[in-house]
Simulated assay, not measured.
Amino acid sequence: MIEVHNIQKAFNGNQVLKGITCTFETGKCNLLLGGSGTGKSVLLQCIVGLMKPDLGSITFDGTVFTNNKVDIRQEIRRKIGMLFQGGALFDSMTVYENTEFPLKMLTPEMSREERRDRVEFCLKRVGLENAGTKMPSEISGGMKKRVGIARAIAPQCTYLFCDEPNSGLDPATSIKIDQLIQEITYEYNITTVVITHDMNSVIEIGDHIIFMHKGLKLWDGTKDEILNAQVPELREFIFSSSLVRAAKKVDEESEGGLEALANGPLSEV
């Protein structure tokens, strides 16, 4: 579990995060939802230590991360896996070498054989067991995201952060990436945090959703609760999609509207 308390961050007098307090639950897909410029990425960077908040605290499973000793912060960082928005693969490395990279950096005590076994396991887990010798330029966008997931979980992470994992992907591939993230979260009981503005992802994997707007947390709940949320800014955001408006109509006319949508039009894309 990750606990965030009163996180504030400003740039040149512009307050980007205005006292965010929230919890990311273990074994669930926690979604940071909101439009562009709402502070989602800044919050994520503060949580993983890429950026220092001006005020507030962040705790990983009871251990304070912010302003703690360097060795404690480094130990927590070793447990963090990150899937970057563009994949961020090294162009000069093969799929295998990209996946092995964090093992070389974070677990120097592992032998070459142990690293090989772990890389082969992770690539097989994301369905890329036959792609190890390929270069990033030789694989599709969806495959690059799967390599990114394999690389993120290679060090056996406890916390998985995904920044817009569906960015640039077609709808069918996006669903597969969502499902893979969800499967890995449940299978390894990981605390997963996904930044998204995609309502399809909300409907597919939104175990716990936090909605941000202009640097504030305005709502949190589950995918089963979000269509009935009474926060004006959230309603404006989610009902900008004709697909979600259709889901709401189904939900009002019969039971299980969201479930029907998730198993209907989305799953057939």
Rank of each mutant, 00 (worst) to 15 (best):
I2E: 03
E3Y: 09
N6C: 05
I7M: 11
Q15D: 11
I20L: 13
T26E: 14
L31M: 12
L33Q: 04
G37R: 03
G39R: 02
S41M: 08
V42L: 07
G49M: 12
M51R: 08
M51F: 03
S57L: 07
S57Q: 15
I58G: 06
D61S: 13
D61M: 03
N68G: 11
Q74R: 15
Q74G: 06
I76W: 04
I76D: 06
R77G: 01
R77E: 06
F84A: 07
A88K: 02
F90A: 12
V95Y: 10
P102W: 10
L103I: 10
T107I: 13
E109K: 10
E109W: 09
S111I: 06
E114T: 06
E114L: 03
R115E: 11
D117G: 00
E120P: 00
E120D: 14
F121Y: 15
F121N: 09
R125S: 14
A131P: 00
S137L: 09
I139Y: 07
G141F: 06
G142K: 05
V147W: 03
V147C: 05
C157K: 06
P171W: 12
T173C: 11
D178Y: 08
D178G: 01
L180F: 06
E183L: 14
T185S: 10
H197K: 10
I209T: 07
I210E: 08
K214P: 01
L218I: 02
D220N: 14
T222G: 10
E225Y: 01
Q230L: 07
V231A: 04
V231Q: 14
L234E: 13
E236L: 07
F237E: 11
I238A: 05
S241V: 09
L243M: 14
R245I: 04
E252L: 13
E253I: 02
E255K: 08
G256S: 09
L258P: 00
N263P: 00
P265D: 14
L266R: 08
V269Y: 13
